[in-house]
Design a protein around this nucleic acid. Sequence first.
DNA 1: TTAAATATATAGGTTATCCTATATTTATGC
DNA 2: GCATAAATATAGGATAACCTATATATTTAA
Lengths: 102, 102
Amino acid sequence: MKGRMMCDMRGMLSFQILFLLSKRHMHGEELATEIGKRRGDKPKAGTIYPALKDLKSKKLITGKREGKLIVYSLTPSGRETMKYATDYFCRAFGDVFALRGK
Amino acid sequence: MKGRMMCDMRGMLSFQILFLLSKRHMHGEELATEIGKRRGDKPKAGTIYPALKDLKSKKLITGKREGKLIVYSLTPSGRETMKYATDYFCRAFGDVFALRGK
DNA sequence: TTAAATATATAGGTTATCCTATATTTATGC
DNA sequence: GCATAAATATAGGATAACCTATATATTTAA
């Protein structure tokens, strides 16, 4: 599927991470798996961990070590960013979905 | 609005161009304006024209000069790519929309 | 205790997407 | 014709998002 794609479909990784964390707390591997379910390809460690590091440095998420895992959740600022980003996303791409099923 | 965004929302430009061209033929400025309506910021010339050049080089769109304008439309390959890309996009981000209004 | 498995971290490279700034082409108004 | 406006083109620079490969930490199994 991805091989057939001739236009670039990268992007919105940090947004998708914030979105998933707004539903429940997750650790890195879990996030990668959830993104993989949606995109068809699970992002590699070298993709997901730098993204988490960046979101953490911007204080949008916090991580709490639980044994082998680091469980991430949104900060208040992360929740607000997520809200604005969702509005933006829906305004930008809403009509792609509106057409589905037609 | 965009200034408040603390997570990167770039991406999917070529997909959005293909999507818009699947609805009607447009020239570059027109595409930029339509994208601007959706994203809140109209992409600059240095963004849109290289993207069109790239899609053209991949034979996903063709351009026909009409006076001052170059009117673009999808090639058969562009239509097929657009279909796969839309499926991918909806699978990847469908639940962002599913939650709206809840 | 040691090995293997799992999760995380980081270095280094590529590309699309964004920008600003400058140039060129084409049509239009005087 | 000549200037202006509008559309297109391109150079050059930044960054997020992807990758591979390697390393480290932590838990589990033998």
